[in-house]
Amino acid sequence: MTRWSVSAPICLLAAVWGCGGGYPEPRNQLTASEAAVRAAEVAGAQNGPQSALHLKRAREQVESGRALIQEGENERAEWMLRRAQSDADLALAVATEEARRRQAAAAKKELDQLQEGLRQGSPPQ
């Protein structure tokens, strides 16, 4: 698809919006973003350094999205809320990953201690 052939549908959409009374409020995206933030919070994303950073950004972007809706900037609001959802999803993923890494490290430590105990001849716990 050439650049102009891609631009043509976008122009057409813009024309349709012009006739239809503007961009709709992104209520579904707002709901999805808020749900993603709650899921990250439930997973403990606020407890890890990297996940907490993404959670913080997600919360801020949700607030920005709400403000943009209030201002009637619905399209900007939708993108802001998509950004919020992507950050919240990432916060959840990183929190889960960090928790599993800690779990694996604890298992490794336990394994090492068991092997060390056997080398030294002490009874296993």
Binding site: L90, T96, E97, A104, A107
Partner: peptide, 23 residues
């Protein structure tokens, strides 16, 4: 963020494998 999600998913998978291996 989607790329970061993929990287994190890989990290999670590796941690899962490590955990299973140690256990």
């Amino acid at each position: 963020r989607q790329v970061a999600l993929a990287v994190s998913a890989a990290g999670l998978e590796q941690a899962n494998r490590n955990l299973a291996k140690y256990q």
